[in-house]
Simulated assay, not measured.
Amino acid sequence: MLRDITTKTLRDQGRTLVWWALSVVLLVAMYVAIWPSMRDQPALNDFLDQMPEAFRNLFATTGADMSTPIGYLQIELMSFMAPILVILYAVAAGSSAVAGEESRRTIDLLVTAPVSRRRIVLEKTLAMVVGTVGLAGLLGVALVVEGQFADMGLPPGRVAAAMLHLALLGLVFGAVALAVGCVTGQAGLSKAIPAGLAVVTYLVNGLGAMVSWLEPMQRLSPFYQYAAHDPLRNGVSWPGVVVALATVVVLVVLSVLGFERRDVRS
């Protein structure tokens, strides 16, 4: 089993993944159930228009129409709750990959197995990717399938594009957690740093259009790559995909180098 680290990692997370999947399905069901009562409330758009611009930018409400299914989901689900859900999972997976093993005193089982440290990191990364993409994919399937019960008529292609960007957003922060864990071996740091970074980059993206000194940094925010193109309405932004993938690859390389050069705590 130790020779297939990816399978073992996913198997160890089996019960946790089931709860994550159930939570996603129930969360989507809640938003779908609320939709019929929201589409007949045109005053909501007036309320959104009267909100300060900073709030509209932070919650991705600029140009969104609450009377349409896509606008409703963009505001209520995709701007905040869905990113939080996927980022939490990815960070937890990235943190537990190496730093978590050290904190549980199980790292010896990995480093003494007939596999290289590089392979350990890469297979742990693959497990994180499979889990994160699977969670985002399940969210998309739940939106399309459950949305039919409320006549939302969501276009599967646009939903798939939004889920691709959502999964990449989670993987960026998951890769940060992995890199910090591989370099330091500290489980607490590997969770705290990506969490703090997520908050900072979220604010930078939301306020970048309003604060002149933040504007140059806005395009560096993973949330900009996730939401600026509005994939739920416009499809995949391939430049955004490339930037997110490149970020993940760089962080994984740093993870490999950090873990190979560090003395592991037993």
Rank of each mutant, 00 (worst) to 15 (best):
Y226A: 08
D230T: 10
L2V: 08
G134R: 00
A150T: 09
S237A: 14
T125A: 01
A177F: 00
V249S: 03
A82Q: 05
P36Y: 11
A179W: 11
T7D: 09
V111H: 04
G208L: 12
F223L: 13
K124C: 06
T125C: 01
S221G: 07
A29N: 08
D230S: 10
E102L: 11
L254F: 14
P42F: 12
V242D: 10
A177G: 05
L27G: 14
S116T: 15
L189A: 15
E146L: 15
V248A: 04
S96C: 04
L22R: 07
A175D: 00
V115I: 12
M51V: 03
S221D: 07
P156Y: 06
M1H: 12
I5V: 15
V200N: 09
D40P: 03
L189V: 07
D12C: 02
K191Q: 07
M66E: 07
T68V: 09
M51H: 07
L126M: 06
P194I: 00
D108K: 02
L251Q: 02
V199F: 11
S237T: 07
I107S: 11
V28Q: 10
C182D: 05
A160P: 05
A43F: 15
L214F: 12
R265D: 10
Y89M: 04
L254T: 04
K124L: 06
V121R: 01
L77F: 12
V129A: 01
L154D: 06
R3G: 10
P216K: 06
Y224K: 03
P114C: 04
R233Y: 11
T68E: 12
Q186H: 15
T9I: 07
L77G: 01
T184W: 14
P231Y: 11
A160N: 05
I5C: 02
F173M: 00
V199A: 12
R11D: 06
R261F: 11
G181V: 08
P114H: 05
M51Q: 15
A113T: 08
A167F: 02
D12R: 01
V129K: 00
